[in-house]
Structures are given as C-alpha cells and as structure tokens.
C-alpha cells in the first residue's frame, strides 16, 4: 500500500485505456506513454493492462506503507530509483519525484496493478467525463498482489533486458503522414508547416498538445470528422494542436497531418517548451 504525500503537478491512475467506445464519444484515454506504462508492468510480471500511477512532471511524493515491490518507468524523476528498474521498497520509504530529467510522464507500477474502479473496461482516469476521481494528498492506494507474479530473479532479469524509453530532450523530430485535409491547405502553408520550428505550449494537457510558432493560413472548417490521438489539427488561430489520449473523438478543424502510431508515446514525453520539427513521410 502507498500513501500520496504530495500530488505535485499531477498524478492519476491509468492503464491501457478503453477501446471500442469512440463511436459513443468516449475517448480511449489511458497512459500517455503506453510503452513506459507497459514496461513498468512488465518488470513486475503484471498484465500490460494493469493500472499504474501516472506521474506528470515534478513534485509528487509517495510513502510506501508496507514493504512493496515497485517498478518505475518513463521520465527519470526519482533520484533514488532509476526509471526502467524495479526493487523491493521497505515500509516507510518515501519516493520523491523531484529530479530534473527529460520527459513529462513517469509510471509507477505495483504487483498486480493498483486496485481501482473500472469504467467501460478501464481504470483510466478521465476527470472531464466523470470517470475516476482526482487523487489527493492522504489518499492510499492498494496493490492487487502482495508480491510479483514472477520470482525476484525474474524481475532482475527483466530489468536487465527490457529496453527503456527513448525520451526526447528539448528538441525532437517527427515524420508525419499527410492529413485528411492536407490538400485543403495551400502548398505554401504546407511548406511553412514543415519548415517551421514549433514549441509545445504550456497550455497543453492530456487532451492535446498545442504548438506555438508561425501562424498557418487555415482552410474552412469541415463537417465533424473522426479524430484520433496523433491527429494534427489546425484551428482558427493557425496554431496546430496535436490530439492526445483524452482528446475528443470527433472534430471540425482541418487535419494537416497524422503522427505515426508508433510515435505517440515519444510525443507524449515531449514537455512544454520542447522544440518540434516535422517532415512528410513519402
């Protein structure tokens, strides 16, 4: 069992998200960086669906109340506990996430995952839509199992072989597919989009990453069209928004591009202030 001592700039329970509900208007949600969430679970022999604690940026502190196996992955925010490793943490130890490091999200897994309520088949917190609740100081979270599903040697072996995430520092490049309204943007605008450097805005969250930089000439809005995480939409102000895990399922802004599915996790770890550049896939 762990107790939350400080919620820092944000933490929530997340898992692999809810699939099959987008046509009812329900975003898939789930861990922003799925690869890291999966790694944290894998290190302890958990199912990859097991609920983990998603820690956004710095300031989070948790106290371990009884001896517990814990795995960390994603951003390397905990100075005494390297991301991409797992170990037995003794009762009373406090994990402090205050180490400046690249990335935006760290993941904390416990054996079997955290006990959590499920909505539409997922424990992912989606506050906007009433699923789950905001964690507060003093909340206690319980793990489903007392010990990992696998032996101590098994955990050690996985820590040694599992590759950790490639987390961008303050600059990242992404190759993009052309969006469904690509042709609606002028050739000059499309060129400007890939020739410009963009900064991830502070006004970014789990629903979308806003980009600041040049302003793009925007074509007319379109009849509402399905949107997926990784869609790059350009709203009226000409500043693109990359839809993320909690983003809406449909939208009327023109989509200039799509991220590769495999790049979503890497994008999720790009923190506000990170510089982005793009190029088109052939």
């Amino acid at each position: 069992m762990i107790e939350i001592l400080s919620i820092g700039s944000g933490l929530s329970l997340q898992d692999a998200g809810r699939s099959g509900w987008r046509r009812f208007g329900v975003p898939s949600g789930g861990a922003m960086d799925r690869r890291s969430m999966t790694l944290a679970n894998t290190l302890l022999g958990n199912s990859t669906q097991a609920p983990v604690l998603e820690i956004a940026r710095l300031g989070v502190q948790v106290r371990v109340l009884s001896d517990a196996w814990i795995a960390l992955a994603g951003a390397d925010f905990c100075s005494l506990f390297k991301a991409g490793t797992a170990r037995l943490v003794l009762a009373g130890e406090v994990l402090v996430f205050d180490q400046r490091a690249s990335g935006l999200y760290a993941y904390l897994a416990v054996p079997g995952g955290f006990r959590a309520e499920h909505w539409l088949g997922s424990a992912s917190t989606d506050l906007r839509n009433g699923m789950g609740c905001a964690l507060r100081r003093g909340d206690r979270l319980e793990s489903l199992r007392a010990t990992p599903n696998i032996t101590t040697e098994g955990v050690a072996r996985r820590v040694a072989i599992e590759p950790t995430d490639q987390i961008c520092e303050n600059r990242a490049h992404f190759e993009l597919y052309r969006g469904t309204q690509y042709e609606a943007f002028s050739a000059a605008t499309r060129e400007k989009f890939v020739r410009s450097e963009w900064t991830i805005s502070k006004r970014s969250d789990r629903t979308g990453y806003r980009l600041e930089g040049n302003s793009l000439a925007v074509p007319a809005s379109i009849p509402s069209e399905p949107v997926l995480p990784g869609s790059v939409q350009v709203p009226g102000n000409g500043q693109p928004i990359i839809t993320m895990r909690d983003g809406p399922t449909v939208g009327g802004y023109a989509k200039i591009a799509f991220l590769k599915a495999d790049d979503l996790d890497r994008m999720a770890q790009c923190a506000p202030g990170c510089l982005l550049s793009f190029s088109w896939l052939d």
Partner: peptide
C-alpha cells in the same frame, strides 16, 4: 478493423 467512428459525412474504420 476493431472499431469504427462516425463523422458527419464520414466513417473511420480503425
């Protein structure tokens, strides 16, 4: 295809 989403005059086959 494991999921579909309707748009106003479109349908996405995920």
């Amino acid at each position: 295809c494991d999921e579909y989403v309707l748009g106003y005059d479109s349908i996405l086959l995920i």
